[in-house]
């Protein structure tokens, strides 16, 4: 197990280097002037351009530029964005909000999705099953920017149960509605995945054995069926959490949440290369670590997967 983790961590190094290099190259080596549009309507003064090019080593060959940038990153310096604010500081705030939102969405989608899936799978073809199938189909077919606005209008404006916008003060209560919107799509997939697994495992030989052992229904479903049915769902949840941590441009946009997705989006719009590369570097790391945790968890849940 320990060996496996070390091996996986070592594997991350080339992945991080490769992906960040690609992003760096795309941001800084693309045709076009990196300082264009930085000074409003006018062209930037030559002194500013010179300073900018020197600061980010833009006159060096690309690999050298990248090498110098990564050197700084390793020392914890992600550079400053175009407003002179350290990117690391920005990202800390933004990741705080996104992490909170992602966790809430994850809890919401897993609890509701798994429960709905169990109830549906236990009585395949029954009322709850049909209800779950139809409602999840409904959720899956509606794009999130539609459901987001509809729920915001309905629960935020009409009923007034939730704040319409989140803004700078991202409290639990304010993030509740956005988290539900964000988690709704995955919830639908989880419910369907769980339903299929439960229904399939209920017909499996080991569940028949559990019945033959004279176990109570509760134990047959709660222990013998559930554990096996959860394995694929946990995998899905893990990868989905990684994606959620990348931020969501649409949901953040609708509810005015100052998260990672919006940060990357505006930085790209502003051609703020340093901010984009910094944010993406962190995102790659987060995604890799979440993936590692999911894989380890998978081995714990399913003893047939060996990490030796």
């Amino acid at each position: 197990m320990g060996k496996y983790i070390v091996r996986r961590l070592l594997q991350m190094i080339p992945v991080v280097l490769g992906s960040t290099f690609l992003i760096y190259a795309m941001v800084f080596a693309m045709p076009g002037d990196p300082t264009a549009g930085k000074c409003g309507e006018r062209a930037c003064p030559p002194a500013y351009v010179k300073e900018f090019r020197e600061k980010y080593n833009l006159d060096d060959p690309l690999p050298v530029q990248y090498g110098k940038y990564m050197g700084n990153v390793l020392q914890g310096d992600l550079g400053e964005n175009q407003y002179g604010i350290p990117v690391a500081e920005d990202l800390r705030d933004r990741f705080g909000v996104t992490g909170k939102l992602a966790s809430m969405a994850l809890v919401f989608q897993s609890v509701v999705g798994i429960l709905a899936g169990i109830l549906a799978g236990l009585r395949k073809g029954g009322f709850i099953d049909n209800l779950v199938i139809v409602s999840t189909l409904f959720v899956i077919s509606i794009p999130i920017f539609v459901s987001g606005f509809v729920l915001q209008y309905f629960f935020g404006l009409e009923l007034g149960w939730f704040p319409v916008l989140v803004g700078a003060d991202a409290t639990f209560y304010r993030l509740l509605l956005p988290a539900m919107v964000l988690g709704s799509l995955s919830l639908a997939y989880i419910a369907r995945l769980m339903r299929t697994n439960i229904a399939e495992n209920l017909g499996s030989d080991y569940v028949r054995t559990a019945k033959a052992k004279g176990l109570s229904n509760r134990r047959i479903i709660g222990i013998h069926t559930l554990r096996n049915s959860l394995i694929p769902v946990i995998t899905f949840l893990g990868y989905d959490f990684g994606a959620l941590l990348g931020g969501s441009i649409v949901t953040e946009g609708i509810f005015n949440i100052l998260g990672v997705g919006g940060y990357v989006f505006t930085s790209i719009g502003n051609r703020d290369g340093i901010a984009v590369v910094g944010a993406v570097t962190v995102l790659v790391l987060v995604y890799l670590i979440v993936n590692l945790i999911v894989d380890l968890l998978y081995g714990v849940l399913d003893p047939r997967i060996s990490h030796d």
């Binding site: 499996s204 030989d205 080991y206 028949r208 054995t209 559990a210 013998h224 554990r227 096996n228 394995i231 849940l301 399913d302 003893p303 047939r304």
Partner: peptide
């Protein structure tokens, strides 16, 4: 079939 009749995760 004992392989499928035993629960694989316990």
């Amino acid at each position: 079939d004992a392989l499928s009749s035993l629960n694989p995760v316990f």
